[in-house]
Design a protein around this nucleic acid. Sequence first.
DNA 1: GCATTAAAGAGAG
DNA 2: CTCTCTTTAATGC
Length: 224
Amino acid sequence: MSALWYIENVDMYTLLCPHKFAEYSKNHNFKRFGKEDVVYWEEDAASSIYLIAEGKVKIVVYGENGEERIKAILGKGELFGEMALFGAEKRRECAVAIDTNTVLCPMSAETMNNLMRDYKDFALGIRKLIGWKLQKIERRMEILLFKDAETRLREFIKDLASESGQKRGETVIIKHIYTQQNIADLIGLARPTLNQLFNDLRSQGALDFKRGEICIKKRQMFAV
DNA sequence: GCATTAAAGAGAG
DNA sequence: CTCTCTTTAATGC
């Protein structure tokens, strides 16, 4: 992976919140959301881009029977609604806050385009963020094509490790934002199945886990 | 091999 | 304490 794509442990929110630029700071405009609060629906006018300052947001689409399919779960420093930048007029997905204290930093497509024109570093940062998100979603689609549940989980953990794992000798510690329900949704499993897989992997000595953290015991078992 | 359901335990606010 | 998340078992496709 080239260095350009990889922004390690940088708080992209602090870096990119457009309101830190003088001419926009007077409009600083946070929006606070609670659990299950909708940021936008499908078909809503796509006028703004959102940067996540705090909390989590799920991006969902709905199937024919109204069942929800989770496209992505995004956390602090990530961005969504970016199609507004490319001239989209309507949302093609729904964005819902899933943390009790989710804070978003909205900005109009116009403001964003002006900033990207005036500040090269900012523009580069935003492009990286969009590219990173695209890559993440594409990668997850690949994972869903793997046959069995265990392979999908192992691949998911592998990706998490290369995104944010801290290597210490043979072990890799991964702090993450997902609940088991979130992970199950993302890789197409029932939650109890996921839980059982985690327990299996733990009893094999492959990893350990607790809320918000996965600790890989033997790196080679996940090829990281 | 995995989903669904249910019931109960553990942790966070 | 209450709500959310996790664990575990039973049952069925």
